[in-house]
Design a protein around this nucleic acid. Structure first.
Lengths: 213, 213
DNA sequence: ATGGTAAAGCAACTGTTGTTGCTTTAAGGA
DNA sequence: TCCTTAAAGCAACAACAGTTGCTTTACCAT
């Protein structure tokens, strides 16, 4: 549910992540893999401020101009990392109940946003500097929220919420407080935040808060 | 409820905003007023990307070094703007009901986040580049949410929600979806978003979602 | 094997951002 | 009115981000 998680899905153009010796694909694919690795590593070690094109190029053992030409700037690099992160087989956990499903979801989000340093937080920050990164992040989240809608469909099937519940609205209501507090408000992390937000959203949904007017 | 609103409160050190001819205070106060004016104007006209120290200095008719020395960087400038914006007498509207109070609140937030260009959005973006701006924004929001708690107290008094309702939790739940959708997810603005989010939060609160475990 | 082509490497240049030592200005108190 | 002092102005500099024209490399298909 978060772009920080290391993707491992197959990508014909890309090359997995840490292959012992030989990577498939031509020189371009090798360079791309090395550069994206460097971006992630640099981000983890020095945060967003330490993420310059020069640093990434040096770390990847690649020339500056190569990076400038293929990715244009830091935002382009992060957009590529983001797109690569979306190529996985992530699915929301099925715990058997709406509230607990949402709690599981929120725990993932909470963990991704509170780890130090947080790749997720760095990518969000980057989305404010680069429209490319912003677009990539929007695509990523669109995809993730779409995958999460099954959680609501299951709840409908179980009769926990009305049949015409707006899945997206419910999911956003459940997760938004985490992002708001941790990313925007920057309040100290509260370990029971995931549970609280999930419970409130589940209660509101059961009360019919997410059906049309 | 948003830093974009032009502050008009008194500040002994500062000088209001648009005084016809003569401003009180010495040269420093005059320079500060001119520079902060320039920041706001530049932000409105050219967005965050056009907000460079040089542009602000030129616009304010002040030397680059003066700005660098007093504010250090763009983040410092915005932090000062933010602090000045907090010095007003804003209070949440009293509409007579919890849900409608929250709707009124959300309409303000929605308007501030969707206007083009949005000073609020620019300040949020800036908070990711500068810890100074981030701190100022946190202070600003802490203050605003504190002022909003009266909305919940009134609802408690009316018996709309349980007495031990967590005011902050409810307020965050009501407003977070707006910030999440408009700032982070960047979904196209939906005019009924304020109502929907307010309704969901009010329903959840009435169902006791924001009382301790 | 070998030649065409796309991508990587290289070096030199431009423009912006931020810094520093010093000079000048003006507000405010004696 | 003059003198002190803090802050603004100035110019020159350093560091760095990003660009461009050209050369070299290596993948791949013939």
């Amino acid at each position: 549910m978060t772009p920080g998680a290391t993707a491992a899905g197959p990508d014909p153009d890309d090359a997995g992540r840490p292959a012992p010796s030989r990577r498939p694909g031509g020189r371009s694919a090798r360079v791309r893999a090395r550069v994206l690795d460097a971006v992630r590593a640099q981000l983890v070690e020095h945060g967003y401020d330490g993420l310059t094109v020069d640093a990434v190029a040096a770390r990847a053992g690649v020339h500056r101009t190569t990076v400038y030409r293929r990715w244009r700037d830091v935002g382009g690099l992060l957009a590529d990392v983001l797109d690569a992160a979306g190529d996985d087989d992530w699915r929301p956990e099925d715990t058997g109940g709406l509230e607990s499903d949402l709690v599981a979801l929120n725990r993932e989000v909470h963990a991704a946003l509170t780890e130090r340093p947080s790749i997720t937080a760095a990518l969000i920050a980057a989305s404010f500097r680069s429209t490319e990164a912003a677009d990539a992040l929007r695509r990523f989240w669109e995809d993730r929220y779409a995958r999460c809608e099954v959680v609501v469909h299951r709840a409908v099937r179980r009769g926990e919420v009305p049949a015409d519940t707006d899945a997206r609205g419910l999911l956003v209501a459940a997760t938004a407080p985490l992002y708001h507090r941790l990313v925007l408000l920057r309040t100290p992390p509260d370990p029971r935040l995931p549970e609280d937000a999930a419970r409130a959203a589940a209660l509101a949904a059961a009360a019919g808060a997410f059906v049309g007017p």
